[in-house]
């Protein structure tokens, strides 16, 4: 199980929670778990979000999620 921190604007899609627990060993499973538990998150996730795992942006959907990792969904940021 991993705990995923949502930004507070996503609470409305997650039964008022800002921290959601899902069964997942990888980012791909984490996204699938989030959407299965809270379908309202699907458009937001599909529109593109970044994921911080232990303070580092992780882009590999197959990367294993370390036990007890700090996971944040944050808005996608690129820059100039």
């Amino acid at each position: 199980m991993v705990e995923v921190n949502l930004w507070s604007g996503l609470r409305r899609f997650a039964d008022g929670q800002t921290v959601v627990t899902v069964e997942a060993q990888t980012l791909r499973q984490m996204f699938a778990g989030l959407i299965a538990a809270h379908p309202g998150l699907e458009p937001v996730i599909k529109a593109g979000v970044s994921v911080s795992v232990n303070g580092v942006i992780e882009t590999n959907l197959s990367a294993p999620l370390p036990e007890g990792a700090e996971i944040y969904l944050i808005q996608r940021i690129k820059g100039g």
Partner: peptide
Amino acid sequence: NAAREGTKSSYGPTYN
């Protein structure tokens, strides 16, 4: 007040 390694950032994640 400076953020440093281990600070919880204002946007969520903890800084490395």
